[in-house]
């Protein structure tokens, strides 16, 4: 009985945890639109690298989740699809999505994005600055966060009108 209760509580916590972190199509539409405002940034179909830490279950699950959401392409002017990678060296895209739980890859991901002439993005606020240039949050309202330091490292600049509407950290 006690075990049952514990499992029940755990499963509830897990469900809540999953639900709190669950990405949506709107997250990636927001990322795609934001990428479209990058000066000299990619346009049209963009296969985004989904970088995850294979040794971290949460990171792996997040990568699966993201790959599923963008499988059919998300966005209009910039249309994102995904390609899961576990190594920064495998990243070739101008857009690298960094999953949750991939903290060990932050520095390398940012450096690689800069080398690719692109940027790192995420839905995980923990990534902002150390690993990611841009992080989006769409609930309860849309907020777009940009790390000025990370943007400087990747030479990412946004259109002025858009830049005035995002939160810079």
């Amino acid at each position: 009985m006690r075990l049952g209760k514990t499992l029940c509580i755990l499963s509830t916590v897990c469900m809540f945890s999953f639900s709190a972190y669950a990405d949506t199509k709107k997250d990636f539409e927001t990322i795609a639109t934001a990428v479209g405002f990058i000066d000299g940034g990619p346009k049209g179909a963009v296969q985004m690298d989904i970088l995850y830490d294979a040794s971290n279950a949460d990171s792996t699950a997040h990568a699966e989740e993201v790959a599923g959401i963008v499988a059919g392409g998300v966005g209009s002017k910039v249309k994102l699809t995904g390609n899961k990678i576990t190594s920064v060296d495998a990243a070739t895209s101008k857009v690298i999505f960094v999953t949750r739980g991939a903290g060990s890859l932050y520095g390398a991901a940012l450096a690689k994005a800069g080398a690719n002439g692109g940027l790192t993005v995420s839905t995980d606020m923990a990534c902002l600055g150390g690993g990611c240039v841009l992080v989006v949050k769409t609930k309860p309202s849309v907020d777009i966060f940009v790390s000025s330091a990370a943007a400087g490292k990747t030479a990412t600049e946004f259109a002025s009108a858009f830049s005035m509407m995002i939160t810079k950290k």
């Binding site: 639109t33 405002f37 309202s141 849309v142 600049e157 002025s160 009108a161 830049s163 005035m164």
Partner: peptide
Amino acid sequence: MAQSIDYGMMQELFGEPVTTSATGKPQRMS
């Protein structure tokens, strides 16, 4: 660098109307 405000895209992006009327700077209504 970059392009001027596209009200339609901004509204779709932020989920609410966008304006430059209040300050001259593009802002969400909220």
